[in-house]
Design a protein around this nucleic acid. Structure first.
Lengths: 155, 155
DNA sequence: GACAAATGTAACCGTGACGCTTACAGATCG
DNA sequence: CGATCTGTAAGCGTCACGGTTACATTTGTC
């Protein structure tokens, strides 16, 4: 897949939103949790919004929240939304058309790539943001050493 | 997966070798088919050799050939050999440990990544170089417009 | 209405990954 | 010996991407 951490960031963001459901969370707070710049967050949020996974509110008291129930957001959907459809990369230049391999390899590879991609997508789709949140809550209970990022009575 | 075309090149190379089994093919010829620089080929071949998929012969009349039967080289093995184990990329900085999500997300993502990776590997392993060669031969028969790269009576 | 608090973007930078190329050392066959 | 190949090191150019700054726009609150 894409070698960027946009997918990781997106899951992270959605997990935070899933934990604070119905609240509007600002990109500043999200940036604090992910440990990056708010603009980076907003860029990803923008993408997620276009995919219909989150809803944003502008202006004072605005922020981001989930547009769907956590259990209805599969990681496959996130992966697809983040535009990481190309795990693979084909030939940079067109291969030699006068060689039978060069002439046909691209089609063969396309087929291989898309089937592998489908398998990957399938594996990711077996998990939802709700699962991620549940795992995090569970581990938090097990080792309750960390507070929430918002300084307002964490538990 | 890795966004490089090393995997595509590797499959291409192995397909050529599969088509000319038992012959020693030079990196120049391979570069001609892939349409790149011989050094790029040699680098990939070197990796494939370390994985035991090809054998090289130095010196005059040297070259590369398959070390295994084409049907015993799965695309999963090629993928793994090319060191593209990281389709995903995690957080660049460590997330905020004082946020429960930040504290646990990395482990959750690791698990997600590795299972997705396994699914991908599995899908790739269902195909071999022999399959690729067979597909190419078939399509070449269907539309026999291209000659081999070697100018020696293609069919 | 003024102001503060947010999102939404555009623009730019620095960095890292990667393919390409040149160059050269070493091995091997004739 | 000389031609032919592999094996590498080194450097270059490019591209994608995260990070940052800056600013326009929207919106709730007083």
């Amino acid at each position: 897949m894409a070698a960027n951490c946009r997918f990781a960031f997106a899951v992270h963001i959605l997990a935070v939103l899933g934990l604070k459901e119905k609240e509007d969370v600002t990109s500043d707070v999200l940036a604090g949790s992910v440990n990056t710049n708010p603009v980076v967050i907003r860029r990803i949020v923008s993408t997620l919004q276009q995919a219909g996974l989150v809803a944003t509110a502008k202006g004072a008291r605005g922020g981001v929240k989930l547009a769907l129930a956590p259990e209805n957001i599969s990681l496959g959907a996130v992966y697809r939304a983040m535009g990481s459809p190309q795990s693979f990369s084909g030939h940079r230049h067109e291969p030699n058309q006068r060689c039978p391999v060069g002439k046909h390899i691209v089609l063969v590879l396309d087929e291989v790539f898309s089937s592998a991609q489908a398998a990957l997508d399938d594996a990711l789709s077996r998990r939802s943001i709700a699962d991620v949140v549940a795992t995090i809550s569970l581990e938090s209970k097990a080792a309750p050493r960390a507070k929430k990022v918002s300084p307002r009575r964490a538990d």
